[in-house]
Nucleic acid binder design. Structure first.
Lengths: 230, 230
DNA sequence: CTCAATTTCATACGAACGTATGAATTGAGG
DNA sequence: CCTCAATTCATACGTTCGTATGAAATTGAG
């Protein structure tokens, strides 16, 4: 069973990669339902049939388009946290350090792949039904790990409040990611770094805010997908 | 020129309203491109032609669906701020007060109309091209006014940083709005109020964070729409 | 050179899309 | 009762949708 045949002499990048790159750009801008397979194939310069041949269906292509960036980014966050913890040798990590571990990898991904922010915002805010499962699997554990690390850094903070504040912070990250191009953060790495720093400051301060035991707050499990259509 | 004829004896709500309500639900869940006019008309129990008759086009219906909620919500924010300022009689407002004026009206709208969060998240994060103009017009001024009020409450804060942090806070609001149903905040006003309180705390603390003069940060005007397709 | 697997390509299918059209239906005013 | 504007409704238009099909072309191994 032969695998990849086409050599690299005439073709700069393989068809499947070209499809993924184009899908990243178009899906990020117009969303799943806003992009047709024909437009996608045309922009990628490949035949329409190549889409089903390489990815089976539009939904699978969409999932793979997102996961190709999301998976390594998420892995990098965990690695960065582990490295920080190893470096600390038992001493508790600063909140800023943990937050930076959460934010820097996505920021770097966003800086490297200009169309990723759109995907990120779309899929984390209002994920299509067919993406929910794989998404939950990938990010659920990471979120849990960071919640534990932060709980260690903020022992006096109610875990429920912490979970809520993590959601708040995630919203901030998504917002700035989604508007990155609009903010002109792509032209200069300096701006980007400065913005990342400001975001770390903002979220860390929010996490540290003293919480006067809000009564009656009782958060559910944060699972429970819903879906209709598709 | 007669206007509304059909009396209210047999029809609970008018056709145009039924269309808006259904549009709110479906657009919130599936987005503009994810909803067909036929499905919309069917779920609303009206004829397909009624959609073009009452709203002219799908885009106009979409804009009106969103603006019907967004306009009064935004107005309420400004009114609440004005009331607070009048009540303060010249004394500077607390950051928490200003932030509450920004957050409470949307929260109330979200509590009253369960499908509004979806619209809000979709349209503020990744607004369709045809909505950008009307959106900018509606929220641009409000954001400016709140930025001024906050600058007065935080005189030592760099305005650039403030603007950035406002974006962060907006992300937090959108995130929690978009996940409101998922978080189970709809069943109990107590949870909702508690979450609102936690969000006010979080954002206020983030706004207050001391900013060690991040060098090289230079934010652009925050305008510049892009668009292709449609 | 041959062969078989891999990849490309043109084409076609039925369904759904947004919108336009004009005929029925409705109901208050003359 | 008749009129007429407002509204509803059935139907049809051209287009685009996602996917399937099978023949052509390409490729590396033997």
């Amino acid at each position: 069973m032969p695998a990849k045949r086409r050599d690299q002499r005439e073709q700069e990048v393989a068809t499947s990669e070209r499809l993924l790159d184009t899908a990243e750009r178009l899906f990020a801008e117009f969303g799943f339902d806003g992009v047709g397979m024909r437009a996608l194939a045309d922009e990628a310069g490949v035949n329409l049939g190549a889409t089903t041949y390489h990815y089976g269906s539009k939904e699978k292509l969409y999932v793979e388009t997102f996961m190709r960036r999301f998976r390594p980014t998420n892995a990098a966050r965990l690695e960065m946290l582990q490295r920080a913890e190893k470096l600390a040798e038992g001493r508790p990590l600063a909140v800023e350090t943990i937050v930076e571990c959460m934010l820097r990898p996505p920021f770097m991904t966003v800086l490297k792949y200009p169309n990723f922010p759109g995907l990120l915002a779309r899929n984390l805010f209002m994920p299509p039904a067919f993406l929910r499962a794989e998404l939950e699997k990938e990010q659920g554990m990471a979120l849990q790990i960071f919640a534990v690390a932060l709980a260690k850094a903020l022992p006096q903070l109610d875990p429920q409040i912490l979970q809520l504040r993590l959601i708040f912070g995630g919203g901030s990250l998504l917002m700035v990611a989604g508007q990155m191009t609009r903010l002109g953060l792509r032209e200069s790495p300096t701006h980007c770094e400065a913005t990342l720093g400001a975001l770390i400051q903002f979220i860390s301060a929010g996490l540290r805010a003293e919480s006067p035991t809000i009564p009656g707050l009782e958060l559910p499990k944060f699972t429970a997908p819903r879906s209709r259509r598709h």
